[in-house]
């Protein structure tokens, strides 16, 4: 298991405690169901795509129950559409709440974007203009979702390919302000920062510097495709060297943050995925060994069991 570490709230912003540090995880995908259930892995925790398990029965739920009995699980959604100008989909929130009750995830996350308008679903993570109007809109909806779920959520920065002339602040400021005003956490996707930085010509390190350490609950790492004039977030490649470098910067700045490798297309063997996760672990360990205090954290201790987490339904070792 992970170098499980008790992490207290920290950082300069108000809000609930940072959730427990889970170590190094990967996305739970159908191709690896059997391998994950077969026996030990080098993985500390799994992330599920929430919508894939909002079903009535069958193999996915059966596998999830078994995985959850052995590992911490985080629920990561793609259809909350927190930035949409449509009303929040209460039926969707009901299903999300039901799944959270069933899974008892370490936390629940989705994306800082919109995915639907006019009752139509794009099934894509569409960017918001970074304006005060959008900020107020998103914050009010995050507050509603958190009240409905009875827990704070985390929001992830998305890869984007187009910006808006109306934007009055950079993305990192918008993301941080959403977190500050709503009390939600931040799922910082390091690959998405790199992809968007290339697509919109900004400095990715500047992005990291603009995010308050105490609000970052989780990292994502993934591969992308170089299309020449732009980078496309495809999750079908290994993590590239510049993204590993940016991850190292993020570890230096944010400390022991739960990390997850996403690989959703051209899915490799589970062992290949484990190797990618181990690479993240070795970078993390090399940078943090010997450090006793990190930004956003009051203490780091060695091999403690996974804590329940003050304001979180933290992961337990019990079966779902």
């Amino acid at each position: 298991m992970a170098d499980a570490t008790s992490v207290e709230a920290g950082g300069s912003t108000a809000g609930p405690a940072r959730p427990p540090y889970l170590g190094h995880g990967v996305g739970l995908r159908r191709d690896h169901f059997e391998r994950v259930l077969e026996g030990p892995t080098r993985i500390d925790w799994f992330e599920i795509i929430s919508e894939n398990f909002m079903v009535r029965g069958g193999r996915p739920l059966e596998v999830l129950a078994q995985v959850r009995a052995r590992y911490p699980v985080v629920m990561h959604g793609v259809s909350l559409s927190i930035g949409s100008t449509d009303s929040l989909d209460e039926a969707y929130l009901d299903r999300l709440a039901d799944l959270a009750q069933r899974v008892e995830p370490a936390w629940v996350s989705d994306h800082l974007c919109w995915t639907s308008v006019g009752g139509h679903q794009a099934h894509d993570l569409l960017p918001l203009p970074y304006t005060e109007e959008a900020l107020r809109h998103v914050v009010s909806r995050v507050l509603h979702v958190q009240e409905r779920l009875g827990r704070p959520i985390a929001l992830e920065n998305v890869s984007s390919y187009v910006g808006y002339r109306a934007s009055s602040m950079p993305e990192w400021e918008f993301l941080s302000e959403v977190a500050r005003r709503s009390g939600c956490g931040i799922l910082l996707d390091i690959n998405n920062i790199y992809v968007s930085a290339r697509n919109h010509a900004f400095d990715p390190v500047r992005y990291l510097e603009g995010v308050p350490p105490g609000k970052v609950w989780q990292f994502h790492l993934a591969g992308h495709s170089d299309k020449g004039a732009y980078l496309l977030d495809t999750h079908d490649h290994p993590v590239c060297d510049p993204v590993w470098d940016l991850y190292a910067e993020a570890v230096r700045r944010f400390g022991a943050v739960s990390n997850l490798i996403e690989w959703d297309d051209k899915i490799p063997s589970f062992e290949r995925l484990e190797a990618e996760s181990e690479k993240a672990r070795s970078i993390h360990q090399a940078l943090l060994s010997g450090r006793t205090s990190l930004p956003g954290q009051e203490s780091l201790s060695g091999q403690e069991p996974l804590p329940g987490g003050a304001s979180f339904s933290g992961p337990s070792a019990e079966a779902v």
């Binding site: 187009v162 808006y164 010509a201 004039a229």
Partner: peptide, 16 residues
Amino acid sequence: FAGDERLSPADRLDIY
């Protein structure tokens, strides 16, 4: 929408 010398707004929206 914002574009640049590499990609116009229409090119960028075409990606989506």
